[in-house]
Simulated assay, not measured.
Amino acid sequence: MTSTSTTLRRLRLALGATAAAVVLTACTSGPTTSASGTDKASDEIASLASSSAEGGADGSNKKLKPGTKEYDDANSNHHRKRYDCQRNKAESLGIELVDDGNGGLTPKTDEHFGMKSDGTYLNDFSKRYIEGVIQACDKEFPIPKELEDSSQEKEEQLKKSQKIAACMRKEGIDVKDPTLNDPTVALDPDDPRSEAAHAKCEKG
């Protein structure tokens, strides 16, 4: 199986390691067992999203210091809950998830999936997976307050992402500047130059 983890690396860079989870980029891999049928999928997605509860805090709101045992335990507990959530919701939609080799999960599918640079879905599979699994579990298990990056850390990570975006534009790739509200560098999954430029600029 082959896959790309550009978006995962990008999110880690933009938000910090605590925010790194399963995220999407265009990729290909082995056979899929995904369900079909747009109307059925939409109903399943709506059902899963409506069943996701707000909150899901993993303890108190006390800010934990990265690198401590207390922080590591809380972070591991949070990600374990998210992964269980993603596997269960994916299974309900007929989507098989496998380890992506970067500490996250990815669909086992031979379809391209992800988001276009204009914010729309590549295809119906992308919509089913992003809304029915990723967004549903993001809502059910948001990052706990005690694990969130500080304002200073977010600013520092944002500057790194903006530097990568500026570098990519010099490479001839049209990307927008990341912001605090949207801190990722959006790549075009249909343009292989986009990922190559990102990898080059990420190295500095």
Rank of each mutant, 00 (worst) to 15 (best):
P66S: 06
A19K: 08
D84S: 13
Y83C: 08
G104E: 11
D110K: 12
H112S: 15
D99Q: 13
S126F: 00
C85I: 09
E44D: 15
T38I: 13
A199V: 07
I45V: 13
S42N: 14
Q152D: 12
A49E: 15
S117D: 06
A49M: 12
L147C: 04
M168C: 02
V175R: 01
E140T: 10
V23H: 10
D58Y: 08
N61V: 09
L48C: 06
I143H: 01
A49N: 12
S92I: 07
T184S: 11
S3D: 11
I164Y: 06
D110P: 13
D39N: 06
T7Y: 12
R10P: 07
Y121K: 02
K40P: 03
H112R: 14
D190T: 11
V185W: 03
T109Y: 05
K200C: 12
N75Q: 14
E156V: 09
C167E: 08
K63W: 08
C137L: 01
D39E: 15
K160H: 05
G104Q: 09
K200R: 12
E171P: 00
G172I: 00
E148D: 15
I45Q: 03
E91A: 15
A46E: 08
S42M: 12
G172L: 00
T6K: 04
F141S: 03
N77W: 10
G119K: 04
S194I: 07
A17V: 15
C137H: 02
Q86W: 05
D99T: 08
P107F: 02
P107W: 03
L122T: 02
H79Y: 04
I130T: 11
E148N: 12
T4R: 09
E171A: 04
D190N: 14
S42H: 08
T68F: 07
L24R: 12
D73R: 10
E155Q: 13
E155R: 10
D58E: 15
E202L: 11
D72T: 10
C167W: 01
D39A: 13
G132F: 03
P66E: 06
S50K: 11
E44C: 06
I130A: 08
L105H: 01
T120S: 08
L105V: 03
G114Q: 00
R10D: 15
K127R: 14
T106L: 09
E153N: 09
S194N: 14
Q135I: 06
P107K: 04
K170Q: 14
G16N: 06
Y121F: 14
D43I: 01
L97K: 05
K63L: 13
T68V: 04
D124F: 01
M168Q: 11
D72P: 07
G56D: 14
T28L: 13
K108M: 04
I134K: 12
A186G: 04
S34R: 09
K159W: 05
D138I: 04
K154S: 12
L187F: 04
N181D: 15
A17R: 12
C27F: 11
R12Y: 06
K127D: 03
A186E: 14
N75G: 05
K200T: 13
S3E: 10
D191T: 02
P144S: 05
K62S: 14
G172D: 01
A136R: 00
